[in-house]
Amino acid sequence: MDTALPRDSAALTYRDAVEADVPALVPLIDSAYRGDASRTGWTNEADILEGQRTDPESIRAVITAPCSTLLVVERDGEVIACCQLEHRGEAAYFGMFAVRPELQGTGFGRRILAEAERTARERWGVREMHMTVISVREELIAWYERRGYRRTGKMSPFPYGEERVGIPQRDDLAFELLVKDL
């Protein structure tokens, strides 16, 4: 296991999001995935999707859903990242992972992913972590593979026509299921 600290090894705190966090979380998630701000980081969807990544209603739904949480990550009292965890039987689903673009590539993502896996194991006793990644995002999939996730080849369709998840710039998008034994 890679235990190296990020170049900026300031203490991170983790907590479950509350509705009062929604105004900070929507722009954080959008900036990590879409638009010019996302290009500051290494893992964005700006070339394959335009438009919003999320909206306040979607964030509230994750926060208030049973067996679900949006884990908020703070450094010095400022929200710098988040990720969704959802209990699904013997597995947990990991999604909506966002790190402020200027902090991507510093090691925070690796630390936050490890904490999310630990949280899911301890909170729900799950044996696996599942996630879906847009299949054309090879660099991101490779990053997850280096952290123990494996490609399953199980694909699900991209929701073309649902602008609330973005406006596709290509016609070959699909989600691939990645799995890691915890």
Rank of each mutant, 00 (worst) to 15 (best):
T3Y: 00
D8L: 13
S9F: 12
Y14N: 04
D16C: 14
D21P: 04
P23S: 10
L28F: 03
L28T: 08
I29W: 01
D30P: 06
D36S: 12
T40R: 13
E45D: 14
A46W: 03
I48D: 00
L49I: 10
G51L: 10
T54K: 01
T54S: 07
P56G: 04
E57V: 15
E57Q: 13
S58D: 08
V62E: 00
I63V: 12
C67L: 13
V72T: 05
G77Q: 10
E78Y: 12
I80P: 01
Q84R: 15
Q84I: 07
R88Q: 11
E90A: 09
Y93V: 10
A98V: 06
A98F: 03
V99I: 13
E102I: 11
Q104Y: 00
G107T: 10
G107Q: 02
F108D: 14
R111K: 09
L113M: 14
L113I: 14
E115F: 13
E115L: 05
A116E: 04
R118T: 14
T119C: 09
T119K: 08
A120K: 01
E122M: 07
R123E: 04
G125D: 03
R127A: 11
E128F: 14
H130Y: 13
R137L: 15
E138A: 14
A142V: 05
A142R: 14
A142L: 12
Y144W: 11
E145M: 13
R147C: 11
G148E: 03
Y149N: 03
Y149F: 14
R150Q: 10
R150V: 15
G153W: 07
M155W: 08
S156Q: 09
P157I: 02
P157S: 11
P159H: 02
G161E: 00
E162T: 11
R164Y: 06
I167L: 12
P168Y: 05
Q169M: 14
Q169F: 09
D171K: 12
L173V: 09
A174M: 10
F175E: 09
E176P: 07
D181L: 06
L182C: 11
